[in-house]
């Protein structure tokens, strides 16, 4: 049973990580909680459904368009809403509130366009998984785990090696200094949304295939992804991935011993304990609680 539990934890962790990494990238650069990231994921998943199942586009093409769509959606949210608020020097709590309003807006829009019933993309047929070291896993689940790990590596290099990545870190560390050396913070914020939302697009595709689509899927995904991101260290993308896996393990091993109704309680209790005793998360830098 242990191998299966391990695999279940890895799958759950990978899904949380896909949500958490994009969210964390945006948080680390822009320094506010973009809860509407969940809306980006949900809307993109429905967009994939629309292209692939309704329009009958090829799967490869649908995937590419979905990722572009997600990027565009995130970029637009920043451009149309958040940027205006920053110009008016709105505080973080206003931005948080705004992201809630955006979430409500997009979830209602999905409901209006696609209806309330469950949608299946139906690209992967349901079949028994294959045995792998004493556990059962499906090919799609392997892809999910692999993508989340590859994404972690790619993001690491993106932040360390590319010009935009470096600029993002500079803005994240100290916006004023970054602007003095000629980095446009506004530009970098846009980039953070484009890259972070592209990851949301990838998450949307994989989660959509694994879990089916519902208008409210964004909120549910976001609550767990956000928990993983904070446990790992809010503002650190590798931390977010690590925290998500830790959350997956804690939940699945936790309910092996406790009644399964406590699954969410375990997640939130860990979140609370981390915030109390190690609020910078696993990988966060101890920047004096600010």
């Amino acid at each position: 049973m242990f191998p299966q539990l391990l695999v279940n934890s890895l799958i759950a962790g990978a899904i949380y990580a896909l949500v958490a990494s994009g969210f964390s990238l945006i948080y680390s650069t822009c320094k506010f909680v973009h809860f509407a990231h969940g809306a980006t994921i949900a809307f993109s998943a429905y967009f994939l459904y629309f292209l692939f199942s309704d329009l009958g586009l090829s799967f490869g093409l649908s995937v590419i368009f979905t990722i572009i769509f997600a990027s565009l959606l995130g970029w637009l949210m920043d451009k149309v809403v958040y940027k205006k608020l920053r110009q008016r020097k709105a505080s973080k709590v206003i931005l948080l509130m705004t992201s809630f309003a955006l979430l409500i807006f997009f979830e209602s829009l999905i409901l209006m366009l696609f209806g309330a019933d469950v949608k299946t993309i139906g690209y992967v047929k349901i079949a028994r998984g294959f045995d792998f070291l004493g556990a059962i896993i499906t090919p799609l689940q392997i892809v999910i785990i692999a993508v989340s790990l590859v994404l972690l590596v790619l993001l690491y290099f993106f932040m360390k090696r590319t010009k935009i990545g470096k600029a993002m870190r500079a803005v994240a560390d100290n916006k004023e200094v970054a602007e003095v050396v000629g980095i446009s913070a506004e530009n970098i914020y846009s980039w953070a949304f484009i890259v972070g939302s592209a990851i949301a697009g990838i998450a949307a595709i994989l989660v959509g295939l694994e879990q089916n689509l519902e208008p409210m899927m964004g909120t549910n995904l976001m609550i767990k992804g956000f928990t993983g991101a904070i446990i790992g260290g809010i503002g650190s993308v590798p931390g977010a991935v690590l925290g998500s896996f830790l959350l997956g393990f804690a939940e699945n091993f936790g309910i092996w011993f406790l009644p399964s109704g406590y699954k969410d309680a375990i997640a939130f209790a860990i979140l609370f304990i981390f915030l109390l005793f190690r609020h910078q998360g696993i990988l966060g830098i101890g920047r004096n609680s600010k």
């Binding site: 809403v81 020097k89 409500i104 807006f105 409901l111």
Partner: peptide, 19 residues
């Protein structure tokens, strides 16, 4: 959904106009 969207839009409008 239409009512919810208008509600969210009004909320956004107030937040943007009076941050």
């Amino acid at each position: 959904p239409a009512r919810q969207m208008i509600y969210a839009l009004l909320l956004l409008l107030i937040l943007i106009k009076k941050p």
